[in-house]
Amino acid sequence: MDGIIREKARGLTFGDSGIDRLAEARGDISALAADPAARCLLFWRGALLVDGEHPARLGLDHPLLALSDQPLILLGQAASGPVFAQDISGWRPPEGAEEPPRHPAFTETQALTDLRAVMFGLTPEDGELTATARALFSWHHTHGFCARCGAASEIVQAGWQRSCPACGGQHFPRTDPVVIMLITSGDRVLLGRSPAWPEGMYSLPAGFVEPGETIEAAARREIREETGVAVGPVRYLGCQPWPFPNSLMFGCEGEALSEEITLDPVELEDALWLSREDLVQVFAGDHPAIRRPRRGAIAEYLLRNWLADRVD
């Protein structure tokens, strides 16, 4: 069974679909762009253009692409042909336009949407393509100037590099490593919620890996800092790209050595130990205080498989 079949079977979005990223072609994409089968994904301020329930794949001559003055980003070779992405965040809808806005060139079935709203229904190929595009656009949005000299940098290598014309600095897309932890104590699991989250939303604790730190050490440190709970040995389970904005989530499990919770109020509004019985209610949508976790996300996968006693 290949990697993406395993990923889809376990319910994760944004896994490895086997896309050829065509790194060797990034220096000159003219032949790929001239391919009649070439298509383009479209983003506007982080939102994805969908057609019905699927990402819209536009021809490279579509008028919407002319709304951007930035070069196309090459995502790779899909089953149907080369796929690019374009960001039209510079387009300003008319004042008072609906949210999300609609451009006159949209068809009746096309609309802008949050990628998280459609992520579980994506095919493996669409999941990898959309995650890659969104993460790259986010990086370009926040890295428009050279970190060495401060001059404006330019997009090169089909979107996979920024070059500084002033000092010659070369900058490459970054991915932030994040640990997300399934911490258990007997038949209970540790959950927390951020102050900014919607009402009823709880998830597994997570945090960034610091420089010079292993994944396992980061998991223990983050749990201790956010909840005061001590954790013993930590085991890596799997990972998921998470393009909100540029993370790679490392799923881990560990056994708690203590249960008393001392919150860091800056990081968490609440944390609690949830029993298996209560988690059954959560997944059934019947819990009075906690909503079901987002399908397709690694937190949901870890919790669902722990509930079924098949975390591996």
Rank of each mutant, 00 (worst) to 15 (best):
F106K: 06
T123C: 08
L122D: 01
D87N: 13
L122I: 06
S89N: 11
E125I: 03
E128S: 06
P124G: 06
E95I: 11
A135E: 08
A105G: 04
D114I: 08
P124S: 12
P101K: 01
L129H: 03
F106N: 10
A105V: 04
S80T: 15
R116V: 11
I88N: 05
W91S: 10
G96F: 04
Q77I: 09
A78F: 02
A85H: 05
L112Q: 04
A85T: 08
Q110Y: 07
R102S: 07
G121C: 11
G127Q: 03
P100S: 05
E95Q: 14
G96L: 05
W91F: 11
L112M: 12
L129C: 08
E108Q: 14
P94N: 09
T113D: 11
T123V: 06
T109K: 15
D126I: 00
P104N: 10
D114W: 11
A135H: 10
D87V: 07
A97Q: 08
E125Q: 12
A79L: 15
D126F: 00
G121Q: 12
W91P: 07
Q86T: 11
Q77G: 11
A78Y: 00
G90R: 06
Q86D: 09
A97E: 10
P104Y: 06
P93I: 02
A117C: 13
A131G: 14
F120Q: 14
T109D: 15
T113M: 12
T130F: 02
A78C: 11
A131I: 05
G121K: 11
L112E: 04
T130Y: 00
P101I: 00
F106C: 12
P82K: 01
A111R: 15
G127K: 00
A79V: 15
G96D: 07
P93A: 12
F120P: 06
T132P: 02
E95L: 13
A85C: 14
S89V: 10
A105I: 02
L122A: 04
G127V: 03
E95W: 09
G90P: 01
A111C: 12
L112R: 04
